[in-house]
Design a protein around this nucleic acid. Structure first.
Length: 313
DNA sequence: AAGACGAAAGTGGTTGA
DNA sequence: TCAACAACTTTCGTCTT
């Protein structure tokens, strides 16, 4: 999309002096279209460009559905990114009169051929299948749209790098989702993903590692805190327990109690401990089910924490 | 009887020679 | 490539409430 200056119809304000602190030093951020006062940090956004869709009508006829200039935003969730066109389905010409039977047949054939070109290569077919599977999985796991987009993006990259060769599409899809969840700070455990996918935890884990390595995706080890809210909600624990659990983890991190340990184990133990301290006691079994670690692990972490943090009950 | 505890053996992954 | 190893799991017997 190109802009012409006179179309922008925006007043370019020359800032001479900050209205707040009277400073004359400004820093200009071209991307955001902002001028920032170096002294007090006041932001002048005199050039902000609306990046939203340009949906104004270019049609004269108002009965035609608003004739917007753009379609929907592109998305990685459709194998063609939602960029294909369709041949109109009405068998009528621009003036509305119907076509001759010969043209009728012609357009029916054209439409069919046109449809076929949408899925033109084996890569496209692969994507179509995989993204369908991705949607299904994400829906069952109740994941928001931005995570799905992220996962779709990762999957596309994986296809580019030929990482699907020798692996199942389902496995790569599941691994992409797993990675996307972690990147968006709403981590799911491998078991949780595996539960809804036809592939097992083992394969998802293996595939995930391969993808992360090949695509150079930096996924930091997930933070135990990211799990707490979800575990607590499964266990129907109130707000104060959540806060308490976060607090415990903060303290544990400070004295290097978390290094090298599985994040889910840490999270589970702190939730168990917090529930006990606040008088909403859950059994080790209940917590272990919610967190997907064994009672033994909870016990070990929990004992370490009690000792190191000097908590007595 | 249910839950907590701990020992022992097994699993899958990482690391360093 | 292989062995050592650390974390975690599984299993099971014992103790506590």
């Amino acid at each position: 999309m190109t802009f012409q200056n006179d179309e922008l119809n925006m007043e370019i304000i020359e800032i001479k002096q900050c209205s707040d602190c009277k400073s004359k030093e400004f820093e200009h951020n071209a991307r955001k279209g902002e001028d920032v006062c170096m002294d007090c940090g006041l932001v002048y956004s005199n050039m902000a460009i609306d990046e939203g869709p340009d949906w104004r009508s270019y049609e004269d006829t108002s009965q035609e559905q608003s004739g917007e200039r753009t379609g929907m935003p592109t998305t990685n969730l459709l194998h063609d990114k939602g960029l294909t066109t369709d041949i109109g389905w009405k068998n009528s010409d621009y003036a509305g009169s119907s076509l001759s039977s010969m043209n009728n047949k012609l357009f029916r054939r054209l439409r069919r051929q046109h449809q076929r070109t949408r899925i033109s290569s084996s890569t496209e077919r692969n994507l179509a299948v995989a993204l369908g599977e991705l949607q299904r999985l994400a829906a069952q796991m109740g994941l928001p749209r931005d995570v799905r987009e992220e996962a779709a993006y990762i999957y596309r990259k994986a296809v580019e790098k030929k990482l699907v060769r020798g692996r199942s599409i389902e496995g790569v899809v599941a691994a992409s989702l797993y990675a996307a969840c972690r990147m968006r700070k709403i981590p799911r455990t491998l078991d949780e993903v595996g539960e809804f996918s036809r592939t097992g935890r083992k394969e998802i884990g293996r595939t995930f590692r391969a993808i992360a390595k090949e695509l150079r995706i930096m996924v930091q080890p997930s933070n135990p805190k990211d799990y707490i809210d979800r575990f607590c909600s499964v266990l129907k624990l109130p707000r104060e327990v959540i806060t308490q659990a976060h607090d415990i983890i903060d303290k544990a991190e400070k004295i290097d109690l978390t290094a090298g340990r599985g994040p889910t184990g840490i999270a589970a133990a702190s939730v168990y401990l917090a529930s006990k301290m606040r008088g909403f006691e859950r059994t080790q079994k209940e917590v272990s089910d919610a967190a997907g670690v064994t009672e033994v692990t909870i016990r070990n972490r929990y004992k370490e924490m009690c000792k190191a943090l000097d908590i007595k009950l």
